[in-house]
Design a protein around this nucleic acid. Structure first.
Lengths: 132, 132
DNA sequence: ACAAATGATACTATTATGGTATCATTATAA
DNA sequence: TTATAATGATACCATAATAGTATCATTTGT
Protein backbone atom coordinates (compact mmCIF):
# COMPACT_ATOMS: atom_id res chain seq x y z
CA UNK A 1 0.00 0.00 0.00
CA UNK A 2 1.76 3.06 -1.16
CA UNK A 3 0.63 6.60 -1.51
CA UNK A 4 3.39 7.57 -3.90
CA UNK A 5 5.13 5.63 -6.64
CA UNK A 6 8.69 5.98 -7.85
CA UNK A 7 7.62 8.33 -10.59
CA UNK A 8 6.26 10.75 -8.04
CA UNK A 9 9.17 10.22 -5.73
CA UNK A 10 11.70 10.91 -8.46
CA UNK A 11 9.70 13.91 -9.59
CA UNK A 12 9.78 15.38 -6.11
CA UNK A 13 13.50 14.87 -5.81
CA UNK A 14 14.20 16.37 -9.19
CA UNK A 15 11.95 19.33 -8.51
CA UNK A 16 13.65 19.95 -5.19
CA UNK A 17 17.01 20.01 -6.92
CA UNK A 18 15.78 22.33 -9.64
CA UNK A 19 14.17 24.58 -7.07
CA UNK A 20 17.50 24.90 -5.27
CA UNK A 21 19.27 25.87 -8.48
CA UNK A 22 16.97 28.43 -9.99
CA UNK A 23 19.86 30.55 -11.19
CA UNK A 24 20.36 28.18 -14.11
CA UNK A 25 18.82 25.59 -16.36
CA UNK A 26 19.28 22.12 -14.93
CA UNK A 27 20.05 19.26 -17.32
CA UNK A 28 19.06 15.65 -16.95
CA UNK A 29 22.73 14.72 -16.88
CA UNK A 30 23.29 16.94 -13.88
CA UNK A 31 20.29 15.50 -12.08
CA UNK A 32 21.39 11.94 -12.75
CA UNK A 33 24.83 12.47 -11.27
CA UNK A 34 23.39 14.12 -8.20
CA UNK A 35 20.29 12.06 -7.54
CA UNK A 36 21.23 8.62 -8.81
CA UNK A 37 18.07 8.09 -10.77
CA UNK A 38 18.06 6.05 -14.01
CA UNK A 39 18.49 8.50 -16.85
CA UNK A 40 15.83 7.34 -19.31
CA UNK A 41 13.29 7.10 -16.55
CA UNK A 42 14.07 10.56 -15.31
CA UNK A 43 13.84 11.99 -18.81
CA UNK A 44 10.34 10.60 -19.19
CA UNK A 45 9.43 12.02 -15.83
CA UNK A 46 10.66 15.50 -16.65
CA UNK A 47 9.10 15.48 -20.10
CA UNK A 48 5.75 14.82 -18.50
CA UNK A 49 6.26 17.56 -15.94
CA UNK A 50 7.00 19.87 -18.85
CA UNK A 51 3.84 18.86 -20.68
CA UNK A 52 1.82 19.40 -17.54
CA UNK A 53 3.20 22.88 -17.04
CA UNK A 54 5.17 22.21 -13.89
CA UNK A 55 8.54 22.56 -15.58
CA UNK A 56 9.60 24.63 -18.54
CA UNK A 57 12.10 23.03 -20.88
CA UNK A 58 14.71 24.51 -23.19
CA UNK A 59 15.87 22.37 -26.06
CA UNK A 60 19.21 22.47 -27.79
CA UNK A 61 22.70 22.99 -26.51
CA UNK A 62 22.85 24.58 -23.06
CA UNK A 63 19.20 23.69 -22.65
CA UNK A 64 17.64 22.15 -19.59
CA UNK A 65 14.74 22.57 -17.20
CA UNK A 66 13.52 25.32 -14.92
CA UNK A 67 10.44 25.58 -12.72
CA UNK A 68 7.39 26.85 -14.58
CA UNK A 69 5.67 27.86 -11.36
CA UNK A 70 6.69 29.35 -8.02
CA UNK A 71 7.71 26.78 -5.42
CA UNK A 72 4.62 27.33 -3.33
CA UNK A 73 2.31 26.67 -6.26
CA UNK A 74 3.64 23.19 -6.99
CA UNK A 75 1.60 20.81 -4.89
CA UNK A 76 2.33 17.22 -4.02
CA UNK A 77 -1.28 16.41 -4.81
CA UNK A 78 -0.80 17.62 -8.37
CA UNK A 79 2.31 15.52 -8.81
CA UNK A 80 0.49 12.46 -7.54
CA UNK A 81 -2.34 13.09 -9.97
CA UNK A 82 0.06 13.58 -12.86
CA UNK A 83 1.87 10.30 -12.29
CA UNK A 84 -0.70 8.15 -10.55
CA UNK A 85 -4.11 9.40 -11.57
CA UNK A 86 -6.94 10.80 -9.44
CA UNK A 87 -6.21 11.29 -5.77
CA UNK A 88 -8.70 8.81 -4.34
CA UNK A 89 -8.24 6.05 -1.84
CA UNK A 90 -11.49 4.22 -2.35
CA UNK A 91 -11.86 3.57 -6.05
CA UNK A 92 -14.66 1.06 -6.37
CA UNK A 93 -13.40 -2.43 -7.01
CA UNK A 94 -16.41 -3.31 -9.12
CA UNK A 95 -15.74 -1.47 -12.34
CA UNK A 96 -19.02 -1.21 -14.16
CA UNK A 97 -21.34 -3.37 -12.13
CA UNK A 98 -23.65 -1.75 -9.66
CA UNK A 99 -22.36 -2.63 -6.23
CA UNK A 100 -24.54 -5.56 -5.22
CA UNK A 101 -24.23 -5.15 -1.53
CA UNK A 102 -24.73 -2.57 1.10
CA UNK A 103 -21.69 -3.56 3.15
CA UNK A 104 -19.36 -2.58 0.41
CA UNK A 105 -20.86 0.83 0.22
CA UNK A 106 -20.82 1.25 3.97
CA UNK A 107 -17.17 0.29 3.82
CA UNK A 108 -16.59 2.81 1.09
CA UNK A 109 -18.36 5.49 3.05
CA UNK A 110 -16.22 4.88 6.09
CA UNK A 111 -13.04 4.94 4.09
CA UNK A 112 -14.18 8.17 2.53
CA UNK A 113 -14.58 9.76 5.93
CA UNK A 114 -11.31 8.37 7.23
CA UNK A 115 -9.34 9.57 4.23
CA UNK A 116 -10.80 13.03 3.96
CA UNK A 117 -8.25 14.64 6.22
CA UNK A 118 -5.33 12.85 4.62
CA UNK A 119 -6.32 14.12 1.22
CA UNK A 120 -6.67 17.68 2.38
CA UNK A 121 -3.26 17.54 4.01
CA UNK A 122 -1.71 16.09 0.87
CA UNK A 123 -3.23 18.95 -1.07
CA UNK A 124 -1.55 21.44 1.21
CA UNK A 125 2.00 20.11 0.82
CA UNK A 126 3.93 22.14 -1.71
CA UNK A 127 7.44 22.17 -3.06
CA UNK A 128 8.43 25.06 -0.85
CA UNK A 129 7.67 23.07 2.27
CA UNK A 130 9.76 20.21 0.93
CA UNK A 131 12.99 22.08 0.36
CA UNK A 132 13.57 24.03 3.51
CA UNK B 1 -4.19 4.32 -5.53
CA UNK B 2 -6.30 2.03 -3.49
CA UNK B 3 -6.49 1.48 0.20
CA UNK B 4 -8.14 -1.91 -0.10
CA UNK B 5 -7.75 -4.67 -2.66
CA UNK B 6 -10.31 -7.18 -3.82
CA UNK B 7 -9.10 -9.71 -1.33
CA UNK B 8 -9.90 -7.38 1.53
CA UNK B 9 -13.13 -6.28 -0.06
CA UNK B 10 -14.30 -9.85 -0.54
CA UNK B 11 -13.22 -10.71 2.99
CA UNK B 12 -15.30 -7.88 4.40
CA UNK B 13 -18.35 -8.93 2.45
CA UNK B 14 -18.00 -12.56 3.43
CA UNK B 15 -17.46 -11.65 7.06
CA UNK B 16 -20.52 -9.42 7.05
CA UNK B 17 -22.59 -12.27 5.70
CA UNK B 18 -21.23 -14.73 8.22
CA UNK B 19 -21.79 -12.25 11.03
CA UNK B 20 -25.43 -11.96 10.02
CA UNK B 21 -25.87 -15.73 10.09
CA UNK B 22 -24.22 -16.70 13.33
CA UNK B 23 -26.86 -19.30 14.06
CA UNK B 24 -25.20 -21.67 11.62
CA UNK B 25 -22.02 -22.59 9.81
CA UNK B 26 -21.79 -20.81 6.48
CA UNK B 27 -20.38 -22.68 3.49
CA UNK B 28 -18.44 -21.26 0.59
CA UNK B 29 -21.21 -22.41 -1.74
CA UNK B 30 -23.75 -20.36 0.16
CA UNK B 31 -21.51 -17.32 0.10
CA UNK B 32 -20.89 -17.66 -3.62
CA UNK B 33 -24.57 -17.73 -4.48
CA UNK B 34 -25.27 -14.75 -2.29
CA UNK B 35 -22.27 -12.55 -2.92
CA UNK B 36 -21.27 -13.41 -6.49
CA UNK B 37 -17.62 -13.84 -5.75
CA UNK B 38 -15.49 -16.36 -7.70
CA UNK B 39 -15.49 -19.57 -5.70
CA UNK B 40 -11.82 -20.53 -5.76
CA UNK B 41 -10.80 -17.03 -4.88
CA UNK B 42 -13.21 -16.88 -2.00
CA UNK B 43 -12.03 -20.23 -0.68
CA UNK B 44 -8.48 -18.97 -0.56
CA UNK B 45 -9.66 -15.88 1.20
CA UNK B 46 -11.56 -17.77 3.87
CA UNK B 47 -8.78 -20.27 4.37
CA UNK B 48 -6.44 -17.42 5.15
CA UNK B 49 -8.92 -15.85 7.54
CA UNK B 50 -9.12 -19.21 9.27
CA UNK B 51 -5.35 -19.45 9.57
CA UNK B 52 -5.20 -15.96 10.97
CA UNK B 53 -7.78 -16.73 13.61
CA UNK B 54 -10.54 -14.49 12.28
CA UNK B 55 -12.75 -17.37 11.20
CA UNK B 56 -13.08 -20.85 12.60
CA UNK B 57 -13.59 -23.60 10.06
CA UNK B 58 -15.29 -26.99 10.29
CA UNK B 59 -14.25 -29.60 7.79
CA UNK B 60 -16.33 -32.44 6.46
CA UNK B 61 -19.97 -32.72 5.52
CA UNK B 62 -22.12 -29.98 7.03
CA UNK B 63 -18.96 -28.07 7.74
CA UNK B 64 -18.42 -24.39 7.04
CA UNK B 65 -17.21 -21.20 8.67
CA UNK B 66 -18.14 -19.23 11.74
CA UNK B 67 -16.61 -16.12 13.28
CA UNK B 68 -13.74 -16.89 15.61
CA UNK B 69 -14.04 -13.52 17.32
CA UNK B 70 -16.85 -11.20 18.37
CA UNK B 71 -17.89 -8.71 15.68
CA UNK B 72 -16.42 -5.78 17.51
CA UNK B 73 -13.01 -7.41 17.74
CA UNK B 74 -12.58 -7.90 14.01
CA UNK B 75 -10.93 -4.75 12.71
CA UNK B 76 -10.63 -3.53 9.15
CA UNK B 77 -6.99 -2.73 9.87
CA UNK B 78 -6.32 -6.37 10.66
CA UNK B 79 -7.97 -7.53 7.46
CA UNK B 80 -5.91 -5.08 5.44
CA UNK B 81 -2.75 -6.33 7.08
CA UNK B 82 -3.68 -9.95 6.46
CA UNK B 83 -4.29 -9.47 2.76
CA UNK B 84 -2.12 -6.51 1.88
CA UNK B 85 0.72 -6.41 4.36
CA UNK B 86 1.67 -3.73 6.89
CA UNK B 87 -0.68 -0.78 7.17
CA UNK B 88 1.69 1.92 6.00
CA UNK B 89 1.28 4.57 3.36
CA UNK B 90 4.88 5.61 3.10
CA UNK B 91 6.89 2.48 2.49
CA UNK B 92 10.28 3.64 1.35
CA UNK B 93 10.79 3.27 -2.36
CA UNK B 94 14.47 2.57 -1.90
CA UNK B 95 14.52 -0.97 -0.64
CA UNK B 96 17.90 -1.53 0.91
CA UNK B 97 19.79 1.58 0.01
CA UNK B 98 20.11 4.35 2.50
CA UNK B 99 18.03 7.22 1.29
CA UNK B 100 20.56 9.50 -0.37
CA UNK B 101 18.67 12.69 -0.04
CA UNK B 102 17.02 14.74 2.58
CA UNK B 103 14.03 15.72 0.46
CA UNK B 104 12.83 12.21 0.26
CA UNK B 105 12.87 11.88 3.99
CA UNK B 106 11.16 15.19 4.46
CA UNK B 107 8.54 13.93 2.05
CA UNK B 108 8.21 10.75 4.03
CA UNK B 109 7.90 12.67 7.25
CA UNK B 110 5.10 14.79 5.87
CA UNK B 111 3.24 11.80 4.54
CA UNK B 112 3.61 10.20 7.92
CA UNK B 113 1.97 13.14 9.59
CA UNK B 114 -0.77 13.40 7.01
CA UNK B 115 -1.64 9.74 7.21
CA UNK B 116 -1.60 9.38 10.96
CA UNK B 117 -5.25 10.18 11.42
CA UNK B 118 -6.36 7.99 8.55
CA UNK B 119 -4.56 5.04 10.03
CA UNK B 120 -6.05 5.52 13.46
CA UNK B 121 -9.53 5.74 11.97
CA UNK B 122 -8.95 2.61 9.92
CA UNK B 123 -7.89 0.87 13.09
CA UNK B 124 -11.14 1.82 14.76
CA UNK B 125 -13.45 0.39 12.09
CA UNK B 126 -14.70 -3.04 13.09
CA UNK B 127 -17.06 -5.59 11.65
CA UNK B 128 -19.85 -4.54 13.96
CA UNK B 129 -19.84 -1.05 12.53
CA UNK B 130 -19.99 -2.47 9.01
CA UNK B 131 -23.10 -4.59 9.40
CA UNK B 132 -25.60 -2.33 11.06
C1' DA C 1 28.36 21.69 -39.35
C1' DC C 2 28.77 19.96 -34.78
C1' DA C 3 27.60 19.08 -30.21
C1' DA C 4 24.54 18.87 -26.54
C1' DA C 5 20.39 19.16 -25.08
C1' DT C 6 15.09 17.70 -25.00
C1' DG C 7 10.78 15.31 -27.63
C1' DA C 8 8.50 11.32 -28.87
C1' DT C 9 7.80 6.75 -28.68
C1' DA C 10 8.26 1.92 -28.60
C1' DC C 11 9.83 -1.82 -26.18
C1' DT C 12 11.02 -4.95 -22.18
C1' DA C 13 11.13 -6.55 -17.26
C1' DT C 14 9.28 -7.07 -12.84
C1' DT C 15 5.87 -7.20 -9.41
C1' DA C 16 1.29 -7.14 -7.53
C1' DT C 17 -3.17 -8.41 -8.10
C1' DG C 18 -6.81 -11.26 -9.50
C1' DG C 19 -8.40 -15.72 -10.68
C1' DT C 20 -8.53 -20.99 -11.65
C1' DA C 21 -7.83 -25.88 -10.92
C1' DT C 22 -6.77 -30.05 -8.60
C1' DC C 23 -5.79 -33.41 -5.30
C1' DA C 24 -5.82 -34.44 -0.29
C1' DT C 25 -8.18 -34.63 4.00
C1' DT C 26 -12.01 -34.66 7.11
C1' DA C 27 -16.55 -35.57 9.06
C1' DT C 28 -21.32 -36.82 8.76
C1' DA C 29 -25.26 -39.61 7.73
C1' DA C 30 -27.45 -43.30 5.59
C1' DT D 1 -18.37 -48.62 5.40
C1' DT D 2 -19.21 -45.95 1.89
C1' DA D 3 -20.83 -41.90 -0.53
C1' DT D 4 -21.00 -37.21 -0.11
C1' DA D 5 -20.08 -32.62 0.94
C1' DA D 6 -17.37 -29.80 3.02
C1' DT D 7 -12.43 -27.43 3.89
C1' DG D 8 -6.86 -27.65 3.40
C1' DA D 9 -2.98 -27.10 0.66
C1' DT D 10 -0.88 -25.81 -3.26
C1' DA D 11 0.39 -24.99 -7.87
C1' DC D 12 -0.63 -22.63 -11.74
C1' DC D 13 -2.17 -18.91 -15.05
C1' DA D 14 -3.79 -14.06 -16.57
C1' DT D 15 -3.84 -9.30 -16.28
C1' DA D 16 -2.53 -4.82 -15.04
C1' DA D 17 0.44 -1.54 -12.91
C1' DT D 18 4.89 -0.17 -12.14
C1' DA D 19 9.65 0.28 -13.28
C1' DG D 20 13.15 0.68 -16.54
C1' DT D 21 15.67 0.87 -21.29
C1' DA D 22 16.70 2.23 -25.95
C1' DT D 23 16.49 4.80 -30.11
C1' DC D 24 15.64 8.10 -33.51
C1' DA D 25 14.02 12.88 -34.27
C1' DT D 26 14.30 17.67 -33.34
C1' DT D 27 16.11 21.86 -31.63
C1' DT D 28 19.58 25.40 -30.68
C1' DG D 29 23.93 27.78 -29.52
C1' DT D 30 28.63 28.20 -30.98
Amino acid sequence: MKLITRYTDYAVRALCYIARHQDKKVTVTELVTNLKIPKSFLRKTLQLLNKKGVLKSYKGKFGGFVLALPEDKIYLADLIEIFQGPLKLNECRLKKAICPNINKCLLKKKIDIASRRLLSEIRSINLKSLIK
